[in-house]
Write a protein that binds this DNA or RNA. Structure first.
Lengths: 304, 304
DNA sequence: AGCATTCATCAATCGTATCTATGGCTTTTC
DNA sequence: GAAAAGCCATAGATACGATTGATGAATGCT
């Protein structure tokens, strides 16, 4: 295929009209330019320049190729500039997945700050529960995911944002501040993983909850509780996103979930990804960033 | 600036999804691909790929650059193909300058044959008297010129096509087959160079012609003669292009002009130029091509 | 006619692309 | 679980090619 170095030489010759002038412009010695032209002619099998008296002249083919060369060189320049814009966070794209209550609380704050700081970056959201979000990360369909988990995650680099406490949620006039105090009540379960966690917590208290309703929607859940249809547990984030005044909430210490931000691949992250994770960390409710040795959980690697 | 070899490697990695597969497709060893990627990242200052488990994944910047690379590689291919079309006479342009009576006789024959043989080539004419045509050649505004001359031309490669005899042109009933037989008549002069040649010829016969009219147009000249307004000389080509039946023509042996085809620059000519000169030679009235050692006049070089 | 300019050729040096061999890490398999 | 296989990065060696300076030939201007 055509050698771009030679095309650059040909373009310079076309622009400056002579081998010597082209060499000067390219900071080459004159024989280098001659050599490149000769090789380019040999490689293409076409006569590109013709000696004409003291100087040279481009043939029709030479002018054609020089024109194309200019265009190609321009595209190379443009690509380089685009890449620089990317690195300088003046352009690019970041895709974020987050679970609903995060999207209802601190994620929009981070997104707004990010958008203001880097207006050239195309920031996109996607709602996804943690298992789906992790899949999206692994498949490369998102760059950053805000997840919660009760266990460790392997194969991804994660950083803990804060501990999201769990709250017992009851109607206003149902007494009892512990799970076991409501063992005879009807219970409302959330998503599959949340229900599993609820079952585990109740088992630790020595009973199995009677789950009558199931819904992911934390607004609906509170509405059900407000109507005296049952009790449930909800994470603090959900209550921060929406708080029905007609329910009573009681913290359940030690039963919280950890909220993490996760990225795929190895460090260092692309600039836009890195910038977004920092914004998210800064906007999360209780950023542990102040302590130098804050907890970091990564599949294998550990962030410094 | 971006190195196209590395861009080709990046594009292959993007297409095939792994370093190993890309290496296979490029017929490279795997470490070569790794090395190119690493260098490209160092040179651009951007992370382009990220290790992800067993394989790698392109970052946003990597995908952007790979896309641009595909485009640039495509343009390089296209340019190469265009050039090949040029060399194969499937595309291109040739510009021809010729003097009027040549354009009225054999040049259109050559042009038609050329157009039929190479329909992809953009063939253009331009009428120009020899001095102007030679200037156009030197300035590169035309590629081929059909000229006539009485002297040698330097600095251009010329090939003689044929000898164009000069004819004495008189009214039908004016007797006298030599120049001197009409020394007392009124004369009609052609263009500046033709008039100079006429003066020289008459001087050789021992008189100065009384030039009353001057016009380049060989149709007008014959009309003037037909109306008994004077006598003149005309080259055979002009008479072949247009013959007024009411004039008498007498050949003047040894006073002809040589008709040449001229090109600029050094051999070998571009394919289209070469093809056109051959067509012109084949279409010229008395091609001397049959003789192996036909006369060739070139400024310095001599065509084999 | 002499001189300056322009381009091509030649020999030598330096940079760099590619290869083979090797090691670390992850994922899969028995 | 441990072993095996797959995938990528690193290191050192080799060879090709680009660049340079010096030289020569030809042209055009003064």
């Amino acid at each position: 295929m055509l050698d771009v170095t030679r095309l650059r030489v040909l373009a310079a010759v076309a622009r400056h009209g002579s081998v010597t002038a082209a060499a000067e412009a390219l900071h080459y010695a004159q024989p280098s330019v001659s050599h490149h032209l000769a090789r380019l002619e040999a490689e293409t099998g076409s006569r590109l320049v013709q000696r004409s008296g003291r100087g040279i002249r481009l043939t029709e083919a030479g002018r054609l190729l020089a024109d194309r060369a200019e265009e190609i060189l321009g595209r190379l320049d443009a690509a380089e500039e685009e890449l620089a814009a990317h690195a300088g966070l003046r352009a690019g794209r970041v895709r974020l997945a987050a679970f609903p209550s995060a999207l209802g609380t601190f994620v929009p704050v981070a997104a707004a700050a990010f958008d203001e700081a880097y207006p050239g970056i195309d920031l996109r959201f996607r709602e996804a529960e943690p298992p789906a979000a992790i899949d999206l990360l692994r498949r490369g369909e998102v760059d950053v995911a805000v997840i919660f988990t009760h266990e460790d995650v392997t194969g991804l680099r994660t950083e803990e944002l804060f501990e999201d406490e769990t709250y017992l949620v009851t109607p206003l006039d149902w007494a009892g501040d512990g799970l076991a105090d409501h063992r005879g009540r009807r219970w409302i379960g959330g998503c599959e993983r949340c229900r599993a966690e609820l079952l585990r917590a109740c088992a630790a208290e020595g009973f199995t909850p009677d789950i009558r309703f199931t819904t992911d929607d934390y607004v609906a859940v509170q509405q059900l509780v407000a109507r005296n249809l049952g009790v449930t547990t909800l994470p603090g984030l959900a209550l921060a996103a929406h708080r029905n005044e007609r329910v009573r909430v009681v913290p359940l210490p030690g039963r919280g979930r950890r909220v993490l931000v996760a990225v795929a691949g190895e460090a260092p992250d692309p600039p836009a990804t890195r910038a977004l994770t920092e914004m998210i960390r800064a906007s999360s409710p209780r950023p542990p960033a102040a302590e130098p040795g804050h907890r970091v959980t990564a599949g294998r690697a550990t962030l410094p």
